[in-house]
Amino acid sequence: MHLTPGQRCRVVCAFVDHDGIVHPVGETWRFLRSDFLPYEDGLSLFVAMPGGAERQIRLQWRPEAEGPVIDALDRHVLPVSAGPGDHALFLTRDSVGLADDVRSPHHFLLEIAGDADAVMVAEAILAAGYPARSGRCPTWSFDWAGAGVLLGYRDDRPFVEAQGSPPPAGRASDVDRLHLTWLGGIA
């Protein structure tokens, strides 16, 4: 499962659970845990709603029930950064390796201020702990308004470097999706 206990999540593709309850786009909650009942192919997600009340979301892992939702749960529910913001930026990333891919999801929602520039976005990505850290000095890049932005870690310290002069223009509110490209790291 791509969700970890304590993680704040948002529904990005609406779905209906086994009890007929609709979970609309934008619904948020904190993931607590999951339980699987093999006899009935039942998967229960236990979540804390924004008011703090615990709720059970029941799903059945069968093709005629909620199996398609469970199979694509990482496309229905995404972890969200803890930062405040008025703009949600959908992040994807390259695959690095199995060990890091298990701990670091390929999809992530970053909540950030709409007026954030490229450097602020890169800093928020690192602060959220989103990209995988494989080896020493892992380095990623993304395209921002036609210019490149590098981000990663050097000697376990985060770094951000905007390419070009002047620095890339544009605001986060102008971008809905951002893909991080893996440039490598020292093993």
Rank of each mutant, 00 (worst) to 15 (best):
V160N: 08
R136K: 13
G185W: 08
V12S: 00
L45S: 03
G51A: 15
F159I: 02
G42S: 00
A99S: 12
R103P: 00
E54W: 03
L110C: 05
H76P: 03
A14E: 02
W182N: 06
G184I: 12
G26V: 03
R93P: 05
A162Y: 03
F46Q: 08
P168F: 03
I186E: 14
M1I: 05
V16N: 01
G135Y: 10
G85T: 05
W182V: 06
S34T: 07
H76E: 02
A128L: 07
P63W: 08
F15N: 02
V160R: 06
V77N: 01
L183I: 03
A187K: 09
G52K: 06
T92N: 01
A53D: 15
G170P: 04
V22I: 07
I70C: 10
A116V: 12
A169E: 13
G97R: 12
G26C: 08
Q163H: 03
R62T: 12
I186R: 14
I21L: 09
R75Q: 13
A53M: 10
V25K: 04
M49E: 14
A172N: 05
W140P: 11
F108H: 15
A116R: 11
L110P: 06
I21H: 05
R93Y: 02
L126T: 07
A116K: 11
G184P: 13
S141F: 02
S44P: 01
L89A: 09
A145V: 00
G148R: 12
P105S: 11
I21G: 01
L59N: 02
R136E: 14
A65D: 09
I21E: 13
A72V: 00
V175E: 05
D115V: 08
G51T: 13
L126A: 09
F36E: 10
A88E: 10
R10G: 01
F31P: 04
A169Q: 13
D143C: 07
D41Q: 14
D156P: 03
G170V: 10
C13H: 10
L150E: 13
R33D: 15
Q7M: 14
E123L: 11
I186D: 14
R157T: 09
L43D: 02
A172F: 08
G51R: 14
Q7N: 04
A132V: 07
H106R: 10
D35Y: 04
D176M: 03
A99L: 14
D115S: 12
L89E: 08
G184D: 11
D143W: 08
R10V: 15
V96F: 05
V175M: 05
E40L: 11
Y39L: 10
W29Y: 15
A122N: 06
L32P: 01
R157M: 08
G170N: 07
G135K: 05
F90V: 01
H107D: 09
M120G: 13
E40K: 13
D174P: 00
P158R: 09
V121T: 15
P38I: 08
E64P: 00
A128F: 08
D115F: 06
R177C: 09
G85S: 09
G26T: 07
V47P: 02
H18S: 13
E54D: 14
D35A: 11
T4H: 13
D101A: 11
F90Y: 15
A72P: 00
V47I: 15
A172V: 04
E27L: 09
V160K: 03
R75D: 11
R154I: 05
W144K: 06
Y153P: 01
R133I: 02
Q60I: 12
D35M: 06
V25A: 02
P105L: 04
